[in-house]
Design a protein around this nucleic acid. Structure first.
Lengths: 237, 237
DNA sequence: ACAGTGTGTAAGCGCTCACTTACATCCCCC
DNA sequence: GGGGGATGTAAGTGAGCGCTTACACACTGT
């Protein structure tokens, strides 16, 4: 009887708890979710990532959440509504933490390293879900657009602003489009994760398919990027 | 009655044609495929890319191929066998053409630009299939391994060899791991395509989400990479 | 003329899927 | 203690899935 007409209308359970979950909760920040809705959202995130959007069944998601399938359909009017809610839920937990790692005043290379390490680690943490969404992006452009608008774009803008600071400090050549440079940098990290992690090892593991650690790969990205951006050292005397 | 016990055993049709198809054909080199097997392989490639491995149904593939579903199961013993054959078929068409674009003797930047443009264009051409395989890589590690062994690894090795030449010409700093550098470069291009092509425009299109053309993005990658690899210009006098 | 091979059509089997209905239970709040 | 909202159980519906069987037709080489 309560056909939840999208992802964000009336969830059941106590109003205090609902408000709390809106402000303070993000999927994995707390030990265990309390309401059925939270349990479903986090289970769905895992099952979608593990099985793919189409193969993931509502039965499997309900089972993973330890909740009956009927409850799933009572909270989300159909499988698509659940997916939309999951994406909204996941977006919350990804916005703008990587950028805060660095202060962007001191050494550019050092700050980039901090930023890249955090971003790369976050991507590895959600690797399965990211892979799934990359695979489905063309099939569900609405969700891709939402992810871009809500997490990719803000991070990009923040990153560009910080590169402006570096340019002010004389660390960046003339004629460099900072937006494009920012995209090149994040593309390195994204592409690197996708290429280097078929085995699913951790960030500091030794072998990741090509014989070096992710840590070293990230350092190499930063090294090449910083040197690639740097202006020629001094006018020839 | 002829349960084709993997991807490559006995296809039907005339032996001459079969041989021909093994040597000379690659999916899309000719205008139209002739036998049912070829039609099925190319249709399956499209449907798998369009719908995803799980959602793609044998009925839809047969229909797209203009062939009956029974014929599909007569050629490939099941859906998995068809997928394996499709991947083998696709691999054939991707091996080592991008590297041949440059001669790797002259200007490093120019050669990298030729290489990168070809590689990027090829990736854009098969973007949907690449996205699908990235999404399914963890679910089908066998196929991921095969693609890596048969197309990624050879290209990487060839690329590294060419970077050795550049190092011999004094274009590369000391202490740079060329394998890792090669990975950084291809990661830039892969990540860039995935990030820049939600709209699915062509290589030379103006807008690709961030306001610049893929052509410019590739040039930026090459620029940053070459500068990032270059040694400091001269010992300070 | 005949066998063999590749293909098509029609029908169906057993299964899983997304989603629904009806009814029972628990627990909090008045 | 009683009402209402959140949940569970049981059962089922119609559709699509992977895959099979049975049979008919067309072509090719001998």
């Amino acid at each position: 009887m309560p056909p939840d007409d999208e992802s964000s209308s009336a969830p059941p359970q106590g109003a205090r708890e609902k408000l709390l979950s809106k402000v303070a909760r993000c999927f994995m920040c707390e030990a265990t979710p309390v309401g059925a809705r939270e349990k479903l959202l986090e289970a769905a995130m895992r099952v979608f990532a593990r099985d793919g959007l189409h193969k993931a069944s509502t039965r499997a998601i309900a089972k993973e959440a330890g909740v009956s399938e009927v409850t799933l359909f009572r909270h989300f009017k159909n499988k698509d509504g659940l997916l939309a809610a999951v994406i909204g839920h996941a977006i919350h937990s990804h916005v703008g933490d990587a950028l805060d790692e660095a202060n962007w005043k001191g050494d550019l290379k050092e700050n980039l390293l901090l930023f890249a390490r955090t971003l790369y680690s976050n991507m590895v943490r959600d690797e399965d879900f990211i892979r799934t969404m990359i695979g489905e992006a063309k099939r569900h452009p609405e969700y891709a657009d939402r992810v871009i608008a809500d997490v990719v774009k803000p991070m990009r803008d923040g990153f560009i602003a910080n590169l402006e600071v570096a340019r002010g400090a004389g660390k960046v050549r003339e004629g460099i489009d900072l937006g494009m440079a920012a995209d090149v940098f994040t593309a390195m990290l994204l592409g690197g994760m996708l290429k280097n992690h078929p085995a699913g090892d951790g960030f500091n593991s030794q072998s990741c398919g090509w014989g070096y650690s992710p840590e070293k790969f990230v350092a190499m990205c930063v090294d090449i990027f910083v040197n690639g951006l740097a202006p020629p050292p001094a006018p020839q005397p």
